[in-house]
């Protein structure tokens, strides 16, 4: 079996040997990416399509540049589109080698221009799975099991192109699909609230973020708000990711902008189409707008705060005003 990232036995040993103490894990985003993301890594990407995507972490990866990345996720939009744009502009600086995934597009905002561009020009090694497959693969990883059985998509052509095995179930004697666990080298995840030790409280759908964090060797978390530990542990069963599964915590308000962060802000319905449109122009052979976008919003700024400085305040206000998701528990103390 060919494992991408860590094999189940390597992953078990890695975590068993790791320092799991409850310690302050705050770092700058620059240092977290520098320390935990290497060339050749398999990166597990949190969020779902354009909701709670780790956009600020991706922007920092793009600024620093990384080579030969494998991206593992169920459904993604902005995070992967941003990495792809950097690859289209300069493959020597950043390139995606392989993807293990189920869906890359932007739902209501349209298909992904750069997925078409890269796939149709044979620039990516692809392994197609379903959303449940990728979610279950992370779950197997988080359970410390080498595989997990699954009923879908039996009968699909995906099985010819991925590493799933169809076996006879030893108990029912019917066909069942076995999915290999996924253990990325590093998980990149954005949440609404975290404490300094890495405990995370996710608002709204969890997507597959807890499983990705538990399955990966390292996890970098950005949060909209860093909150007091005492406030976090007041609701222990609302902790979605426990501290010992997290290696770096960075407070980055708007860390998933221009996507949606449940209870904090909705999609920027102006900025997402603008970014998508420069990607579409690049697909058609005109790279100048894409280059301008990256110079203005990513390479030309040093962090997410400076990126947000470039967004008109009325737009930032709008994404907060129209957000409908509510927080499960409102009262928390913001860390000084």
């Amino acid at each position: 079996m060919h494992w991408t990232g860590l094999s189940p036995d390597e992953a078990r040993k890695f975590t068993a040997d790791k320092n799991k103490s409850k310690r302050d894990k705050r770092k700058s985003l620059h240092d977290a990416v520098q320390e935990f993301i290497n060339d050749g890594d398999n990166i597990g990407i949190g969020g779902f399509v354009n909701s709670r995507q780790p956009v600020s972490i991706v922007h920092e990866i793009i600024r620093q540049g990384r080579k030969d990345l494998t991206l593992s996720y169920q459904s993604a939009g902005l995070a992967v589109e941003y990495l792809a744009g950097a690859m289209v502009l300069n493959e020597e600086h950043l390139n995606i080698k392989r993807m293990e995934f189920a869906y890359w597009a932007h739902e209501a905002f349209g298909i992904s221009p750069l997925f078409r561009y890269l796939a149709e020009n044979s620039k990516l090694e692809l392994e197609d799975w379903s959303n449940y497959n990728m979610s279950a693969r992370f779950k197997a990883g988080s359970m410390g099991l080498p595989f997990i059985p699954c009923r879908s998509p039996l009968g699909s052509d995906m099985i010819q192109r991925n590493r799933a095995k169809v076996m006879e179930c030893p108990f029912t004697q019917r066909p069942i699909m076995l999915l290999p666990a996924s253990h990325p080298n590093v998980a990149i995840i954005h949440v609404q609230e975290a404490d300094i030790y890495g405990n995370c409280r996710i608002q709204g759908p969890l997507f597959t973020c807890p499983e990705i964090a538990m399955a990966s060797a390292y996890t970098i978390v950005t949060c909209d708000r860093l909150i007091e530990h005492d406030d976090m542990v007041r609701f222990p069963n609302r902790i979605s990711i426990p501290f010992f599964a997290v290696d770096a915590v960075v407070e980055v308000p708007f860390g998933s902008y221009p996507g949606n962060s449940h209870g904090v802000h909705y999609f920027d319905e102006k900025h997402i189409p603008e970014f998508r449109s420069v990607c579409e122009q690049a697909r058609k052979g005109d790279y100048s707008s894409l280059k301008d976008y990256y110079e203005t919003f990513i390479f030309g700024v040093k962090n997410t705060a400076r990126f947000m400085d470039k967004i008109p305040f009325s737009q930032v206000q709008q994404v907060q005003k129209i957000e409908s998701g509510s927080r499960l528990d409102a009262g928390f103390t913001v860390l000084e």
Binding site: I111, E120, S122, N131, S152, S156, D157
Partner: peptide, 24 residues
């Protein structure tokens, strides 16, 4: 398919959850 899987004429977004729904 499968010959041109890595260089399709048109690449579509992928299964997402549709295949799981269609199966189960």
């Amino acid at each position: 398919f499968p010959d041109n899987y890595q260089s399709p004429k048109t690449r579509l977004p992928g299964s997402g959850g549709a295949s799981d729904m269609a199966c189960s």
